[in-house]
Design a protein around this nucleic acid. Sequence first.
DNA 1: TATTTACATTGTCGTTACGTAAAGGTGTAT
DNA 2: ATACACCTTTACGTAACGACAATGTAAATA
Lengths: 254, 254
Amino acid sequence: MEYTVQKLSHLAGVSSRTLRYYDEIGILKPARINSSGYRIYGSTEVDRLQQILFYRELGVGLDNIKTILTEPDFDGLKALQVHREKLLEKKEQLNVLIANVEKTIALNEGRIIMSDREKFEGFKQKLVDDNEAKYGQEIREKYGDDTVNKSNQKFKGMTQEQYDAMTKLAKEINELLYAAFRTGDPAGELAQKTADLHRKWLCYTWDSYSKEAHAGLAQMYVDDPRFTAYYDEKQPGAAEFLRDAIFIYTGQKA
Amino acid sequence: MEYTVQKLSHLAGVSSRTLRYYDEIGILKPARINSSGYRIYGSTEVDRLQQILFYRELGVGLDNIKTILTEPDFDGLKALQVHREKLLEKKEQLNVLIANVEKTIALNEGRIIMSDREKFEGFKQKLVDDNEAKYGQEIREKYGDDTVNKSNQKFKGMTQEQYDAMTKLAKEINELLYAAFRTGDPAGELAQKTADLHRKWLCYTWDSYSKEAHAGLAQMYVDDPRFTAYYDEKQPGAAEFLRDAIFIYTGQKA
DNA sequence: TATTTACATTGTCGTTACGTAAAGGTGTAT
DNA sequence: ATACACCTTTACGTAACGACAATGTAAATA
């Protein structure tokens, strides 16, 4: 039995364009070309196309399918296992996406019916989540899961009053930082007051305070452009200045 | 605070190419262009970029993000809900893919250690699954879930002897069909014998036989190119011939 | 000050797996 | 003879950039 593109395409449930494309990329060549230049496929090609479609249904890329079908001693099983891993990864990513979207939807919907108290809880949760998404991996690598979890727990355990106080303190720190920056002296009184307030601010969420950790965080403010951006937003150089001040405050040598 | 492409890209954790692309598609224009033609971004643009990245993280397409951010009274919540539906669909597809890949892996792995008996069971299961994947929806729509499930159950309940007999019968039918086809007479003895054997073959899996269902199936052999291909593989026109023979056999008017 | 280095610009091609024309030749039925 | 279905190649479009190339500009250094 012989087939033209159209016939074979109907038979297999794919488009004729697909068959031409498969010819083009060399994954399925016709058995022969007739005198008019038509592609003619035989039963060998039908079988091969079925194999192709089988792997395609599994979401394997055409490039990989080509390898699987072309190399006779290729380990198709291993290829499938690798492919499976990829699919599982994709699934995980999708799950995270869905969770985030749902959380966002819930937050938005909640804006109408959530009580102030609940709103606040959700807001804190969102802050923690966002923070995790942004810095989670790096910070956890640096400080360890336990430290980070405790910090998050402490944050979520705060009352609204504590949270407001923390926010207010952060604002004060910022203002003080910019004032200190204008003095240009990280060892000066203003700068050292800023460093002290910063320590106090940290203690809202840190389970235990250490000068080393404080100095480490300060260095990160400079190293990580995303943190730098926060402090440099209104005053370029502020992040570096804060680090210098904290280094002096903690007795770290610069 | 003002940023060049590089600065902003570091700040936001995207590439400068991305920023140029976002400018190009009009989703994020720089605040101004300086005398050297450099793109200069301000804090307004930083905010907007953050919004863009937020939605991007959720997997929303740039086109949709553009709409969400541009139209001031656009319902972002509804967009997210629609998006959520899409994600869930994707997840479902992924789950099916993963299940199939795993089944295939299991089958392949099994080839080594499976006993002949287990091999046979797995093979039957695979045939049922493949059949479901190929024709499941249409057949279930046509005959109802109950009929199809019973058929599958009956098939899986077969012993190897029964299965072998069924396979042998199928082969006989094919040979008989081609012989009958050469007579050209669907009402002739050979063709009617073929139709009778076909009924017998069906009863291996059909819970109950009816002439209407038999004729319906015969018609489907002609209507569905994937079925047609099976019978027409060696002899074009065989599917149609078989239908005619069965119509006569069942007393259906053609 | 001259030169290097870092960064800016636009433009173009490549990526996946085809869909969708366009322009023109072929096969078959009426 | 003509209509109509089907074939061919060529080539642009898709999403969201990455990776060059060729060239201009700003800042740092010898």
